[in-house]
Design a protein around this nucleic acid. Sequence first.
DNA 1: TAGAAATGTCAGTGGTTACTGACATCACTG
DNA 2: CAGTGATGTCAGTAACCACTGACATTTCTA
Lengths: 196, 196
Amino acid sequence: MNGNKKMNTSEKIMMAAIDLMAEHGYNGVSTQEIATRAGFSEKTLFRHFQSKQNLLESAFNRYHYAEEMKDLFLKKIVWDLQKDLLMVCRSYHRIMYQNRKLIKISTKVGDSLPGFRERTHQHPQQLKEFLTGYFEEMYKKGKIIETDFESNAKAFLYMNFGAAMGRMNNDPIFAGTPIDSFIEASVSIFTRALRP
Amino acid sequence: MNGNKKMNTSEKIMMAAIDLMAEHGYNGVSTQEIATRAGFSEKTLFRHFQSKQNLLESAFNRYHYAEEMKDLFLKKIVWDLQKDLLMVCRSYHRIMYQNRKLIKISTKVGDSLPGFRERTHQHPQQLKEFLTGYFEEMYKKGKIIETDFESNAKAFLYMNFGAAMGRMNNDPIFAGTPIDSFIEASVSIFTRALRP
DNA sequence: TAGAAATGTCAGTGGTTACTGACATCACTG
DNA sequence: CAGTGATGTCAGTAACCACTGACATTTCTA
């Protein structure tokens, strides 16, 4: 999302807005502060974006990474429980980490501004359906035991969702341990629980 | 947290503040709106609380349920994996649900106001240590297999944390299914994964 | 180097916000 | 009934905020 040194004025302002709003919320930061952080005058901000709300919307359109996880996963499946779950976890956390600041903004904004929450929280539903279908298919292939596939999918997703939230909010539980070791441990719990 | 009909002025105002701030955040609601929602004039709000920030702090002191989960769990342990994990989950979700509005406020406030985040998010660290110790003891008793106990504790807690967050934010995944059936399914995953 | 485009400066507008003081009203209670 | 305490009314203050217009200055580029 960042790291690029060659940013134009609009991009610098959007990045400043994202950084500040992720920390203090939409109403917790002023256009003056955003412009100063970006290194421009407030006037320039309004010349580029007309309004504060439009600035946030533009930032979402520019930086929200909305790759279809379902499609991504279908391509990479190899029908090996451990390999597939690892792949799903890693992709999920990668995307959540890329979008972490926009996700923080949308959780703080809530439903005050319309549409943002929907965009950052669109994945869970389709992921749950994907994983439920995956477990059903794996059962038909005789590779896992019969369980409540939908509940398992929910548990797996919430485990990763909770971990992603903890990571983006600097949960002290994550201090020191990289995300990948958590992913491996959490996947092995499910493989042990579901193996025939 | 609510439901009591015999509330005095201060309590009515604090409840109104909690309701509105949980939805729109601290900066997203005015003292005027809070007073109107509570059925009083803005002047009365300031007579009782002096400042907006003090109102929020008073509401936290009055309504934040900070029971020591660790102590609670230690009393109820029976050293049966399924029974203990069920007890932990149910207690955890009960407390998270009681505090849900204050938790929503503190996630929106972030670190802008000092101290709130710490209070609503104090549990994870001590719960992780409790669960890690519990798994070690269960291993010594020969009731579960040897694994990375701390990682298992993290995974278990994040699964429940994610589910609690989803529930308090009306995640459509939870629509229709009660929390208890999720708890049972998630616990049985861990019991199957850890049984010798 | 001339002209165009981007940006800065600055003063200002209309609205909101947290918060106050003075005074009136109401309910209860001894 | 007198008096006390809680509340309402209302006008107001100082700060902040999103946003604008006029004009000057800088920067880029043909």
